[in-house]
Write a protein that binds this DNA or RNA. Structure first.
Length: 297
DNA sequence: CCTGGGTTTCCTGCTT
DNA sequence: CAAGCAGGAAACCCAG
């Protein structure tokens, strides 16, 4: 059983690593989504990233550091890796404000010290850790009720960076919710933790993955669409394509919408999603989902 | 090694 | 009939 699973899930590295290879099983059915099914950004030198890999890297950066998606204008990074590598620090700060120089250092680190083919996303954090000024005088966000955090150590400074400049609105959970309770515990543990262990190494959670597709329309080739933006209602247009994209992210080629939707249904109980009765492929963000509102920052 | 969170996989039954 | 939806149950994976 395990062997079978592994044999299915492991994608041949020789297919993925080559920067110009698009001969994966993902390419053919969704040719309109060029770049969506190629090697992941951390497998390839940034110089050879396509636009999607640049987007992946950015998304990973935002997710890993739990930044608000509005911190960075994704449209400013609708570029290839070649262009990304040639951008100056000024270009980065122009495109991403205060976060720009962290991104710049991250990409410099990847350019010169990247470990391609290794899924460990160290460069995202190492640079941040070494490049930050002293924030000892700054009030930590955790004390202001900002509870939903998946990464608490290395990237702490970058979060401060973003939030100090964007005045993020904290979210407040009810005591009945089990999900935030665990996050509270993590927050309380944070001051004791100084190590470099990463939380959520598999990347974003499913709902965040969905949210980020919705938030980057220029990278969303008709996969999911807002039905009611202000209410957080959205609909899957290409359910199987989204499932495959999710599977791609999790290195699981057997992902289907049926399985993805089961995971989505688990979110109802945690109030990350709310049921939308009678409408197929339609979901609604719940009160424990954050980062999807237009003016949430 | 153990545990818990977050899925992933499979399944049965129901609905559109 | 096909495609989705609802959840239960169990397995899996991984960080702590």
């Amino acid at each position: 059983m395990i062997l079978q699973r592994n044999s299915i899930m492991n994608i041949n590295p020789s297919v993925n690593v080559h920067p110009h290879s698009h001969q994966t099983a993902w390419t053919a059915p969704y040719s309109t989504c060029e770049g969506f099914f190629t090697a992941q950004w951390h497998d390839v030198h940034p110089q050879y990233w396509n636009k999607y890999q640049v987007w992946e890297w950015l998304q990973q950066f935002v997710d890993t550091n739990q930044l608000d998606a509005s911190c960075i204008s994704f449209s400013e990074f609708d570029i290839t890796g070649e262009r990304l590598c040639s951008m100056t620090l000024q270009d980065y700060t122009q495109a991403a404000g205060e976060v720009g120089h962290i991104l710049y250092n991250s990409i410099q680190n990847l350019k010169w010290h990247g470990n391609y083919g290794n899924p460990v996303l160290q460069s995202l954090n190492v640079v941040i850790k070494t490049e930050q000024p002293d924030h000892s005088s700054v009030t930590p966000w955790k004390e202001s009720g900002y509870l939903y955090e998946a990464c608490y150590d290395d990237v702490y400074d970058s979060k401060l960076y973003c939030r100090n400049n964007l005045s993020v609105t904290p979210i407040h959970y009810t005591t009945s919710s089990t999900y935030p309770e665990s996050e509270v515990k993590k927050s309380q543990v944070y001051p004791q933790r100084t190590g470099s262990k990463k939380h959520n190494p598999r990347g974003t959670h499913l709902w965040e993955f969905i949210r980020d597709i919705l938030l980057t329309p220029d990278k969303n080739p008709g996969l999911i669409r807002w039905e009611d933006r202000s209410e957080g209602v959205f609909r899957f247009l290409k359910s199987e394509a989204v499932a495959q994209l999710w599977g791609k992210k999790k290195n699981n080629s057997s992902m289907t919408y049926e399985k993805l939707s089961r995971a989505m249904r688990y979110y109802y109980k945690r109030e990350i999603l709310e049921r939308v009765d009678g409408r197929r492929l339609v979901y609604k963000f719940g009160k424990n989902a954050r980062g999807w509102r237009e003016n949430e920052s």
